[in-house]
Amino acid sequence: MPPAKAFAAWSNVEIKRRWFTQPEGWDRRDPLTLDFRVGGLETTAGGPPGGFRSRYKACYMEIQPNARIVYTYEMHLDDRKISVSLATVEFAASKTGTTLTVTEHGAFLDGYDDNGSREEGTNFLLDAFGKVLTAA
């Protein structure tokens, strides 16, 4: 699909809610809120039943339609802030559609050991993103 369609799945809250979500069975009481403009905020939260609660809060820093999105986000695990990250998403037209590149710079706090789980979580989301787009 062309970059414009891939970009819409990041900028439109209805579409983004379909893929930027918790795994099946998790608490989904706090659905995604998205104010997609420079300076705008985005939030969601959730966790496994009876388990931890993770909270996501982002702020958009740069938006170039159909080309680039940069945002900064915090992750909280229960009452603890575990990381602050800068994420860059680039959309480039390719012969077969769109090449999506996500780059994350992270500051992990107070001895929190990520042990690869952020990359795993991001890949989980991008897989869901791909399924939503190809189903649409």
């Binding site: 740069e62 800068l86 860059t88 710079h105």
Partner: peptide
């Protein structure tokens, strides 16, 4: 973020 002459040139942590 930094802007030069009204154009955003970077976003940093």
């Amino acid at each position: 973020t930094m802007e030069a002459n009204g154009k955003r040139i970077s976003a940093s942590l």
